[in-house]
Design a protein around this nucleic acid. Structure first.
Lengths: 347, 347
DNA sequence: TTGTATGCGTTATCAC
DNA sequence: GTGATAACGCATACAA
């Protein structure tokens, strides 16, 4: 029993396929009674138009894709969820592709591009060259958490300044031996955070800090890097982590080494994931609008698909001071409030 | 400049479109030299076959979809990532749809079904009726974290027995006033966990516990429910949470109430997310193979798409005892090891 | 080994 | 209002 087609429905309703198409897409005038007959026939056959055929004829996929590395965890899910949300709002399906650092990522992305009306590309999943290639083939692209490429716009969250400020805060608290935990080469955003870390040292007249302590984004890597970093008499008194999950790894490392946070070592993260508020002491961090990043990227993509040129966008971030960056503050009587309006303190 | 078609390439290579199709899909014999010419022409035009047209002709979408509620957090991302991984391995694109509890979820899922070769449906995103409807329309479905429906198979992680055992462990530790935090009506899995909680009480000869303390899956909800539950002189001495994130909310609630874990209240979670090991004390929980769930569901779906009938599948879970369920164990000298081989202790 | 011709299920442009 | 009919871009029996 082959699935019904527009012909089956037309025949059953006693009209032509053109009429069936009209009522379903309600393009063009149709008599009320005719409409009823068609709708009834379609319902009886439980028919819905074949998207492949419809797309082919209309030259539209009705779908958008997003490409990301391998990020599990809150950042990934929030960004993708935001993207999905926007796609659905724009009446498009959402396709996802995790490159995992697979060698044939370029190929996979190119393939994906052939089945969507446009796509969002995160981080360094593919080279600038591929981005240009995609645009050249007529696939609108929006970059996410990565610098713009030519006329291809980017959506990002501010990183450099926030990193400078949160580092400056630690320095103002008296820290002089600070470490940066994360891999600047892993993602453009991390590179910005690392640079902000450096800028704060410069502005404070402190000697340049050592190289970053390489770590990936997941907790286990943060644990390993944190252990290596802290299991040393000459350990830093403050650790600025590239993201919250790595910071939680440092929490575990500190605990296993018998070190207290923030007394023995201050720690800050990035993202403000829910767990940052659950741990003790609560984790100071920089909040970035993860879901909104995905949503905005999706919106920009929709604009580009519609032929509207779109400009790059940088969303604001927010420093969230909590007890982990010390000095130890009782949650009921916070002492580390900072007056700067863009900063914020939570209990 | 309209994008090139198979005709453009054929013309440029001096062959027919049939030959072009043959080399690209390498179906049928093609002379080596001819192949080269075609490949060259395709490259020069940077052409790739239109998926819509190809799919229409081949009656295949080359895509699979997954439908889930709204779950952010590790569980969601891992399951979806596992699904995506399997889809890619089977040479299919992955479409996602979050229903968010939107009222028109049925409609959205039906629409999604029209653009994939089959789909995975999680939890109670749609009714059994819709599942039957999908199958009726020829869309293979695989259920995830939800009971099978007729011939539609389900992939699940064992919940009932694990819940019974982890509750029994708490009871064996001397607890008699236990609470279950979570909403059994929110998801089939939670219902199983709640029932296991009850079974353990029965088996231990303890009086039936009170109603579950309703809470969603996110930390904030766990915090609210936990606060209401613990801010009471008659509070329970142990809380079995439906998932880790809610449990972390309980951690925060306990801290804000000045209660210590596990001394004042023991806490267990579910999933074994990374943060469970980062918090102090480490969170006892039940590990379920989240990524594998998505992967297996994807694999079963592929089988069904290929016409192979597939049976339901229940993946094993693993109890992970950590200090949060007490008695207080120093991480260096664990005292709560349990000899049962299926159980496991981590430092 | 290669080319021809038909079908895939819609959309959309015309006439009527 | 409605109905032919030509794209849409490709896959594939069938011929050659």
């Amino acid at each position: 029993m082959p699935s019904p087609s527009i012909y089956t429905v037309a025949q059953r309703a006693g009209v032509s396929i053109a009429t069936v198409s009209r009522v379903l897409r309600d393009s063009g005038p149709v008599a009320a009674t005719t409409r009823e007959r068609v709708l009834a026939a379609a319902a009886e056959l439980s028919w819905s138009p074949n998207r492949l055929a419809a797309g082919l004829a209309a030259r539209v996929h009705g779908a958008a894709g997003i490409v990301f590395p391998d990020l599990a965890g809150p950042y990934f899910s929030q960004v993708v969820l935001g993207f999905e949300e926007q796609a659905v709002a724009d009446d498009r399906s959402a396709l996802i592709l995790a490159t995992h650092g697979r060698l044939n990522a370029d190929e996979m992305v190119l393939d994906l591009a052939a089945r969507v009306d446009g796509l969002v590309v995160m981080d360094r999943t593919v080279t600038d060259e591929v981005v240009r290639c995609l645009e050249g083939r007529g696939s609108p692209v929006v970059l996410l958490a990565r610098p713009a490429v030519g006329a291809t716009p980017a959506v990002r969250a501010e990183s450099l300044d926030a990193a400078t400020r949160i580092t400056a805060h630690l320095i103002a608290l008296g820290h002089t031996r600070l470490a940066f935990l994360g891999d600047p080469e892993a993602a453009p955003d991390v590179d910005d955070r690392w640079r902000g870390f450096l800028v704060a040292h410069l502005e404070a007249g402190l000697p340049a800090p050592g190289k970053p302590v390489r770590s990936g984004f997941v907790q286990d890597e943060g644990y390993a890097a944190g252990t290596a970093l802290l299991d040393d008499a000459a350990r830093p008194t403050a650790v600025v982590c590239a993201n919250d999950e790595a910071a939680l790894g440092v929490y575990a490392a500190a605990r296993d080494l018998g070190l207290r946070i923030p007394d023995d070592v201050a720690v800050t993260g990035w993202d403000d994931i829910p767990a940052a508020r659950a741990v003790t002491p609560p984790l100071a961090t920089v909040r970035q609008p993860m879901r909104e990043l995905g949503r905005q990227a999706g919106a920009l993509l929709s604009a580009r698909i519609a032929g509207v040129p779109a400009d790059s966008l940088t969303l604001p971030t927010e420093i969230v001071l909590r007890a982990s960056c010390g000095p130890p503050a009782n949650s009921r009587t916070p002492t580390n409030r900072i007056p700067t309006p863009t900063r914020r303190l939570e209990p």
